[in-house]
């Protein structure tokens, strides 16, 4: 009798939780914990650096995840030419919109760091990244005081016809010294599987924030008008915007 009522209670609980999981209002209540996490972490973490590792600690293989080849006509044309015609467009709420080639980015002061990449799924890989700090590029473009977020637009579509991949970060992460526009992984130019020619490194957040195949960087005041309004491809599909946890 007891076992049966226990099972019945369990079934009721599970069914109830499943129903709650499907309710947008309840999802909103659960997601309110995200903003608490964001605020507490910003307070506790401040501008602290992510741990950097030694070359001996590198993962033997740095796996590719998500899109491993954008395979669009536009991207294929750029790739065939060794990305010499590729330009990173920097615009939005900035005083000086820019179009930077890979050579111009490489000519800027570079930073190299060995850091851990954490996927939301649970795995981690350690890689050596070289690139130009995003803050350096933003200083050239001079965002206006109205800018609150940096949005990164990518060349890939994870699902065809579902809108391109994009991501966004706040200005604290955008100007963090380890936040890079990275063009090299483990001393080699970024492979297509890892986001050639340029990807974001935002070391204190999970992998889906590290947008690959960068095409455009925009300073904006509001994320609601972009995509489905949640600040990123996976965010629009239910994942948290702040992925420091």
């Amino acid at each position: 009798m007891l076992l049966r009522s226990g099972t019945a209670f369990g079934g009721l609980l599970l069914g109830g939780c499943d129903r709650l999981s499907r309710s947008p209002t309840f999802e909103g209540i659960l997601a309110s914990a995200d903003s608490l996490t964001y605020r507490v972490q910003r307070l506790l973490v401040g501008n602290a650096l992510a741990r950097e590792f030694t070359p001996a600690e590198l993962s033997p293989v740095f796996r590719s995840n998500g899109t491993d080849d954008p395979d669009t006509d536009e991207y294929n044309a750029l790739r065939e030419n060794g990305f010499v015609d590729w330009r990173l467009m920097i615009g939005g709420l900035v005083a000086r919109p820019l179009a930077l080639s890979l050579a111009q980015l490489r000519a800027l002061p570079q930073r190299t760091q060995i850091t851990r990449h954490d996927c939301v799924e649970g795995w981690s890989a350690i890689g050596k990244w070289s690139g130009v700090p995003l803050g350096t590029v933003l200083d050239l473009a001079q965002p206006s005081p109205a800018a609150r977020f940096i949005v990164l637009y990518c060349a890939d579509e994870l699902e065809e016809g579902d809108g391109g991949y994009y991501e966004s970060i706040d200005l604290i992460d955008a100007y963090h010294p380890q936040t890079l526009l990275a063009y090299a992984l483990n001393d080699k130019p970024l492979a297509v599987g890892n986001g050639a020619p340029l990807r974001l490194r935002v070391e204190r957040q999970l992998g889906y924030k590290h947008a690959k195949y960068l095409m455009r960087v925009e300073a904006v005041a509001d994320l609601k008008v972009i995509g489905r309004g949640k600040g990123g491809y996976w965010e629009d599909r239910g994942y948290a915007w702040y992925a420091g946890i």
């Binding site: 972490q41 973490v45 420091g244």
Partner: peptide, 8 residues
């Protein structure tokens, strides 16, 4: 497991 908290 939190990359943010690891920095702190």
């Amino acid at each position: 497991m939190s990359p943010g908290f690891d920095a702190a």
